[in-house]
């Protein structure tokens, strides 16, 4: 009994409620005529799309920089890489590889500056990260208009300059990961093996990194800065490194998202993308200063599951689409819950 209670405590009530809610949605679904197989397939696809962006939270949480509300900055690096790859005329699978390669220098550069900034504002990272995200999105809105892109698939047709708000990835890297070794079971269920493998690869890289010497130093900086300094770790450098990693993961995350979604969303598109990722990892059991790969996997699955299931089930159950409201309440409620908990200084 005590063990059960401890298990519940370690899992946390909010998570249990959300998991039960999702479970009940899956149970109700067939009764109201929603196909479970296609819902499950959607959930998995969305998991793959969003997983890496959720993963982007992990390094910064580990080094004590808090939740990466500045994810839009990484996303912008990804957008730059993606658009440049198309601009240079790469097609198919090679365009995705080029996008990843072109993205990397931007992500490192942005992450470096962002990390330096966050080192100056220790203690107030999350609020400033939020606004760094917002202002960089707004700044890039101007840039998308001004940068000298010329590819006719991307610029406005009638003026010949300035990028469109949404750019199709068809013919470029649309579904390059989704369709790689795709497993189709029945009519409604498909498993995007390539995308899941890619996610697994990224998750493994992060996991392996956190077990290297630098990785453990990062964890030390986050959990006990005084001890870390005493043992000769350069705190600022470690933090900057974690921010660079988070930014890069965010950039790769958006590329994976785009290849599955089919569109590159520019301008105000990345504006609020941090919040779903933040709440996903929190639903998975992370807190402001503690996050694991398991949290990412569990959280993304639960969050995306709710996102996929509520609209269809709600619609057929009460003929009203309240999913929007449920999503807002659940995701922000989760963030609030995490923010208000006494942060455990040691673990």
């Amino acid at each position: 009994m005590i063990r059960v209670r401890q298990l519940i405590k370690s899992f946390g009530w909010p998570r249990i409620i959300i998991a039960l809610f999702l479970l009940s949605l899956f149970i109700i679904a067939p009764m109201v005529g929603v196909k479970v197989s296609s819902s499950l397939s959607d959930t998995i696809a969305r998991f793959g799309m969003n997983g890496i962006m959720v993963l982007a939270m992990v390094p910064m949480v580990h080094s004590g920089c808090g939740l990466n509300f500045g994810l839009p900055l990484g996303i912008i690096a990804g957008l730059l890489g993606g658009t440049l790859s198309i601009q240079f005329g790469f097609l198919g699978g090679s365009s995705f590889i080029m996008a990843v390669l072109l993205t990397t220098p931007f992500a490192v550069l942005f992450g470096f500056g962002y990390g330096k900034l966050l080192n100056k504002v220790k203690g107030g990272e999350m609020m400033i990260a939020t606004y760094v995200g917002f202002s960089s999105v707004a700044f890039m809105c101007m840039m998308w208009l001004l940068l000298p892109y010329t590819s006719p698939t991307m610029v406005w047709g009638y003026t010949g300059s300035g990028l469109r708000t949404t750019i199709s990835t068809e013919g470029f890297y649309l579904h390059v990961l989704n369709d790689f070794l795709k497993v189709q079971i029945g009519e409604n269920f498909s498993f995007p093996t390539g995308m899941m493998l890619f996610f697994a690869l990224m998750a493994f890289i992060v996991w392996a990194f956190l077990h290297t010497k630098t990785g453990t130093a990062m964890t030390a900086v986050g959990s006990n800065p005084v001890f870390a300094r005493a043992s000769g770790i350069n705190i600022d450098r470690t933090r900057t490194l974690s921010v660079i990693m988070s930014t890069w993961l965010g950039a790769i995350g958006i590329l994976v998202y785009q290849q599955s979604f089919g569109f590159i969303q520019l301008y105000m598109g990345p504006f609020y993308m941090a919040l779903p990722a933040v709440s996903a990892i929190l639903i998975g059991g992370a807190s402001v200063n503690k996050a694991t790969i398991t949290n990412v996997v569990v959280g993304t699955f639960l969050f995306q599951g709710i996102l996929t299931m509520t609209p269809s089930v709600m619609n057929s159950l009460i003929h009203t689409d309240m999913s929007e409201v449920i999503r807002i309440v659940v995701s922000n409620g989760m963030i609030l819950y995490a923010l208000t908990r006494k942060s455990e200084a040691t673990r």
Partner: peptide, 22 residues
């Protein structure tokens, strides 16, 4: 461009103020 500029400035000014404060 001007419209995006003012959005950028609105957010930028909050960012700067928050950073300066810290």
């Amino acid at each position: 461009l001007g419209e995006y500029f003012r959005v950028f400035v609105s957010y930028g000014v909050i960012t700067i103020a928050l950073v300066l404060y810290e």
